[in-house]
Simulated scan of single mutants.
Amino acid sequence: MFAALARLSLVTRIIIAIVLGIAVAIFFPEFASNLSIFGEVFIKALKSVAPILVFVLVLASIANFSVGGGHSAKIKPIMAMYGIGMFLSALTAVFASILFPTTLLLNVPADAALQPPGSLTEIFKNLILSFVANPVTAISEANFIGILTWSVALGLAFRHASDSSKLFLNDAAAAVNFVIRTVISLAPLGIFGLVAVTFAQVGLSTLASYGQLLAVLIGTMLFVALVINPIMVAFVTRKNPFPLVLKCLRESGITAFFTRSSAANIPVNLDLAKRLGVPESTASVAIPLGAAINMAGASVTITVLTLATVHTLGIQVDFLTMVIVSIVATISACGASGVAGGSLLLIPVACGLFNISSDIAMQVVAIGMVISVLQDSTETALNSSTDVLFTVAVDQAPTK
């Protein structure tokens, strides 16, 4: 039986875990509490690996990025589209969160210190103090803003290091990816325990809550794919964007939906870019770079789940603060892992703006894993199809 389960995809196993967890909660509610250990261990494992994951992957990505003079003329506008697209995606998620506020089911300690930021000045003060935190302390305390700062700074410094040092960083990133894949492979067991306990405690009302959360997430990503991206492509190419947009969604988005990995979809995107006339010198840099840092779907996930957490905890924020959340989500999304569920581990970065504890933030990550069957697949489809879409758009842009 275990061998048969191991042969199933992660998505299938998560679906089975959710169904079994609901069944246990309905038919054996008195037994469900005994299963909490599975969910607790899974959340603990996520909390342990997330800081190292962000630090190593961002450091290695920046240290090994090099653009030759032959393609820099097109790489720069592609990178600009990546950044603008992620920010607009996060901003779209802000409006969606305002229009459809979502409440999560969180286990908030009675003595939790949840002080909303008093002013914009206080937010910037917290940001600055987080930026200059000791790197060891930042990792040990899961201060993701400090972790991002140090990983970027060291990544820039390592760009001048020897090739052997950069190779070591790549090997370290691969090793961390292996660890996170191992942790995420345990997701079905952890989700089984989480679902069983949650549904036994609150009943089937959880379905409605997750249903709204999924609707906001997927609806926002579809809006980005079918409205925001076409507008950007039309601005760059000066022609009807939908033939290109739909082709990228069909030939890149569908495969990414099922592989749930932007990295795994790189060969598909390179082949599509080649067939659409993009020079290999441009595609070979832009497509892998996009798989590492172009995460429009991740910025949507981070923003929506963070603001849902803020709404659940009753923290009042103004629109300007939400724009800042969009900026943080955009920056954080660049550090999302290339494996399934990577963006969820960046949620604590944005939650840190509101002094939300790591324990609560990782509960939100666990909720994200429960809905990741659809959320992460849709997110990856948006991320990966946008890589090749923006690359082709810049290549097809009329010359001045």
Rank of each mutant, 00 (worst) to 15 (best):
V94T: 01
A96I: 10
A96N: 04
I98L: 13
I98F: 05
L99I: 13
L99P: 00
F100H: 09
P101Y: 01
P101T: 01
T102I: 13
T102D: 13
L104V: 02
L104R: 02
L105T: 15
L106E: 14
N107Q: 12
N107G: 02
V108Q: 10
V108F: 09
A110P: 00
D111T: 14
A112H: 04
A113G: 12
L114N: 10
Q115Y: 13
Q115E: 15
Q115G: 11
Q115D: 14
P116C: 04
P116F: 04
G118I: 10
S119T: 12
T121N: 12
E122I: 08
E122P: 02
E122D: 15
E122A: 10
E122Q: 13
I123N: 01
F124L: 12
N126S: 15
L127V: 11
L127F: 14
I128K: 09
L129G: 03
V132T: 15
V132E: 11
N134Q: 07
P135K: 04
P135N: 05
T137W: 10
A138F: 04
A138H: 07
A138N: 07
E141N: 08
A142E: 07
N143A: 04
F144Y: 13
G146K: 05
G146A: 07
G146F: 02
G146N: 05
I147S: 00
T149G: 05
W150I: 03
S151E: 09
V152T: 08
V152Q: 02
V152K: 02
A153N: 04
L154S: 01
G155P: 10
G155S: 10
G155W: 03
A157F: 15
A157W: 15
R159W: 11
H160F: 15
A161H: 09
D163A: 12
S164Y: 13
S164C: 08
S165I: 13
K166M: 09
K166R: 15
K166Q: 11
F168Q: 07
F168P: 00
F168K: 10
F168H: 04
N170C: 13
D171Y: 12
D171K: 14
A172G: 04
A173M: 09
A173S: 15
A173L: 07
A174P: 02
V176W: 01
N177V: 03
F178I: 06
F178S: 13
F178C: 10
V179F: 03
I180A: 01
R181T: 09
V183F: 03
I184R: 08
S185W: 12
A187L: 12
L189C: 03
L189P: 02
G190V: 05
G190W: 06
G190M: 09
F192V: 02
F192A: 01
F192Q: 00
A196D: 07
V197F: 12
F199E: 05
F199M: 06
